[in-house]
Design a protein around this nucleic acid. Sequence first.
DNA 1: CCGAGAATAAAAACGATTATCATTAACAGC
DNA 2: GCTGTTAATGATAATCGTTTTTATTCTCGG
Lengths: 146, 146
Amino acid sequence: MTQEQDQQPRGTRVRGTKQASALASALTSLPGFCSAQEIHAELRRRGETVGLTTVYRHLQVLSETGAVDTIRDPSGEILYRQCGSTVHHHHLTCRVCGSSVEVEGRAVEQWAEKVAAEAGFTAVDHTVELFGLCPGHSASPMEPPA
Amino acid sequence: MTQEQDQQPRGTRVRGTKQASALASALTSLPGFCSAQEIHAELRRRGETVGLTTVYRHLQVLSETGAVDTIRDPSGEILYRQCGSTVHHHHLTCRVCGSSVEVEGRAVEQWAEKVAAEAGFTAVDHTVELFGLCPGHSASPMEPPA
DNA sequence: CCGAGAATAAAAACGATTATCATTAACAGC
DNA sequence: GCTGTTAATGATAATCGTTTTTATTCTCGG
Ligand SMILES: [Zn+2]
Ligand SMILES: [Zn+2]
Ligand SMILES: [Zn+2]
Ligand SMILES: [Zn+2]
């Protein structure tokens, strides 16, 4: 359907910059969903010199190509994560630590298609996000770290 | 079924301001999901004098009490709509005109609970939005304005 | 009619994201 | 290994939806 047709004129297209690899490394090591600014801070913490603009630009490209997944936290901020599978899936994310479980939703996909068809809608895309408390943070209900 | 059920605790709580009723009227007449700024513009168009701040504040309260539903459009902007049913439901919204169909998702609810339980997550909340093209805007499939 | 307090609204603040643009540096060719 | 081309970078400014601030207005009970 949405086949990519990259017309890369010979080998001069994607430059192997150290920023790109540093970002890739950070994304791989970060366990859960993080905001662009958190990722930027993490890179700084590692001693890498990567500008915030570059972080944003790379994350945007990576998300467009499907290399990273994006979700919106309840406040609207975009969170990024490098995911294991490239097939369509959704996420169950902890509100406290950001750790995330990838969930497959055959049932959701079918439901979405069904209700869309019944309403006569076409080109329907869906957003499905699950937020909760992971097992580690479900333990003590009364423990706001503040 | 569209009866108002104000749960206002007697006395000094909700004042009968003209702005509130103007906003309520606009919300009732607007067919689909609109942004706060669109609603504000609509009120201005009607000759009502309502500040943007007031629109935001009322929409926030109304969404908290469940009187209006909110979704986030793909760009992150919050859209509001007065919905028919007060029970939990989701929306199938047209990307072009904003017209929306309320869809009930027993299957989704069960799926969400199931995957949350399997992962050991608690206090799980879900966001499910469907965006597509309504029957009226599905007409010409080949029409990229670019 | 008066006054306390809620409601309003203009303007300023806020914060995440994007655009700008001068500078840097990766890579192909020499 | 140099060098030039040119994509990539990143500090800064701009954008824009939303929130906060604050002075003013208005509602409503007495
Ligand atoms: Zn994922
Ligand atoms: Zn899906
Ligand atoms: Zn609704
Ligand atoms: Zn639901």
